[in-house]
Design a protein around this nucleic acid. Structure first.
Length: 555
DNA sequence: TTAGGGTTAG
């Protein structure tokens, strides 16, 4: 409708001068056009101006403005607009409240959304329609409350409000995101065969994404075939899901094959396509290829965003090219992109990896100065970075400085500190932290045990390690392959050969395998005759066999 | 003659 926002504002000015004034519909159309251009604050300004010069508004006007407020995460202002409408005798309807409900959900105010939804049902002002139910279901799904979402799906059906493809797709997608793809497929079948609702490309995208995440490639192929039979064309999102899945599996050539298909079929690559590809090359350590793609993005008329930059930074950091990472970090700032928590965390990890602790710590402070609040991941990386760079004391003091917040109650954080303390010879501190875990009401996990057992073995405290090993099962945390390998290595290094055979049988009984380090250590001890050669037969059985399932599908 | 909901990348 408009080339740019100025044209819209010019038209608004002109409309306000006309005698007689254009109808409210004309103003609503203008307001909606501005909103569709995502100039939400402009839309709100126009509405305020309309009020000042007393241009009449109706429920459409109010709903459009509420939507603008909600899209800016200012739902409170949306409610104010609702009040403003009431003052002018504009009665809200199911559209108005769906919009407000959506706003609350955008801001993660699920309790408030639920309360509003229940109030609306109770007051019986109007019966919620499919879209209002869908909005509420989306909110529940966003918080992983899938059971209630499914219950609401059943309820709406009972109350005579027909669910549609969006209702089902919302829940299917949510189930796929928590890897419950089989439940999602069940719901998909219910939708198609019992409710006779046709799936669309979005439904397929959600399922394909879920299947890709579980590496269920055969079923991905089947879904793509099914789409073809149903004459549902894959869209850019469908291709992007495949490109990303292939890149994450390291199959960048195949991802490029999909991209070639996209171009053949006239599908425009977008920034998501390029970002996945960059990430794929980074993952394989092919940084010059990643860089090549990055440089080509703008040539193709696509603008890199903060995620694209973060992917590239992550690639440079993981491949220990911190200078390059720094260069692009500064470049993105120069281009007026504000690094977010993930960007900072990526850089911090890179700096710690190459041992630039001071730079890392400065950046950590810089991030807080820019009001980017470190999350659990950031703290984990900083603590781990300090521990790995022989600064366990600093890590411990930061940990205590964090106080008794959620992070201090994170088993991952504890495990890092226990590992750090024991690796720097502070086994007593490690032991104290280990005991603190249960006191704080946290559940010890297998990784924590593994770290502590390795720590004890490193200090020659095989007795303590053994005691811990045998309490794992009863504490509801049975040893895994890593525990057994770590413990075996500890036993061998401490020349406690009597346990070796028993432990190998344990490995066999639990269906685990030996890792390369353990095998070579075992062989060394057999060569040195400190272990009996008769163990070789058992060891041979415990060496892992190769076998991979690679994706292969035709789009 | 105008308003609300579901899918992809760090």
């Amino acid at each position: 409708m408009f080339e740019n926002i100025d044209d819209a504002l010019k038209l608004f000015d002109e409309m306000t001068q006309r005698q007689p004034l254009p109808s409210v519909v004309k103003f609503n159309q203008l307001l909606q056009a501005v909103t569709k251009m995502k100039h939400y604050s402009c839309s709100v300004e126009i509405f305020k101006q309309m009020n000042v010069i007393r241009i009449p508004v109706d429920v459409y006007t109010i709903t459009i403005v509420i939507n603008s407020c909600c899209q800016m995460y200012h739902t409170r202002e949306g409610f104010a607009a609702l009040g403003n409408g009431l003052k002018h005798a504009v009665l809200p309807n199911v559209w108005t409240f769906s919009t407000l409900l959506n706003g609350l959900i955008l801001e993660d105010k699920i309790i408030k959304a639920e309360r509003l939804f229940k109030k609306l049902i109770k007051k019986e002002l109007f019966e919620p329609d499919t879209i209002m139910y869908n909005t509420m279901i989306k909110g529940l799904c966003k918080f992983g409350i899938n059971d209630t979402a499914i219950a609401l799906l059943k309820l709406m059906d009972e109350r005579g409000c027909k669910p549609d493809v969006v209702t089902y797709t919302t829940i299917i997608d949510s189930l796929c995101k928590v890897k419950m793809v089989d439940d999602a497929l069940k719901l998909f079948k219910e939708m198609v065969f019992h409710k006779y609702i046709q799936p669309n490309v979005v439904t397929y995208n959600s399922l394909i994404h879920g299947l890709c995440n579980l590496c269920r490639w055969d079923e991905v192929s089947k879904m793509l075939q099914e789409m073809k039979e149903e004459k549902i064309s894959p869209c850019v999102e469908t291709y992007n899901i495949l490109v990303d899945a292939l890149c994450k599996e390291g199959m960048v050539e195949d991802a490029n094959g999909v991209i070639k298909l996209m171009i053949q079929r006239g599908i425009d690559l977008d920034i998501v396509t390029y970002t996945s590809l960059i990430d794929g090359y980074c993952l394989r350590g092919e940084m010059s290829k990643a860089r090549e793609v990055f440089d080509s993005v703008e040539i193709h008329g696509v603008v890199p965003n903060i995620i694209t930059y973060s992917s590239l930074l992550n690639g440079y950091c993981k491949n220990l090219k911190i200078e390059d990472a720094m260069h692009f970090f500064h470049e993105m700032i120069k281009k007026d992109m504000k690094p977010d928590v993930i960007t900072y965390t990526t850089m911090l990890q890179g700096l710690f990896r190459v041992g630039h602790c001071k730079d890392a710590y400065d950046l950590f402070n810089e991030m807080r100065a820019h009001n980017e609040i470190p999350d659990g991941c950031t703290y984990t990386i900083v603590l781990e970075g300090l521990c790995n760079n022989n600064q366990v004391e600093e890590a411990l003091s930061l940990f205590h400085l964090m106080g008794d917040n959620k992070l201090n109650l994170d088993i991952v954080v504890y495990t890092i500190l226990i590992d750090g303390a024991s690796k720097s010879g502070k086994i007593d501190i490690a032991r104290i932290l280990f005991n603190e875990v249960s006191v704080k009401g946290l559940q010890l996990d297998v990784w924590t045990y593994n770290v502590m057992i390795s720590g004890f073995c490193r200090e020659g405290l095989v007795g303590e390690a053994k005691k811990l090993f045998y309490t794992m099962e009863t504490n509801g945390c049975p040893p895994d392959s890593v525990t057994c390998n770590a413990f075996l290595q500890g036993i061998l290094k401490n020349q406690q050969h009597d346990f070796v055979e028993m432990l190998l049988k344990e490995v066999e009984g639990r269906g685990f395998t030996l890792d390369a380090t353990t095998v070579s250590l075992l062989l060394d001890h057999i060569k040195a005759r400190s272990l009996d050669a008769s163990l070789l037969k058992l060891i041979g059985k415990l060496v892992p066999k190769e076998g991979v399932d690679a994706p292969c599908f035709t789009v």
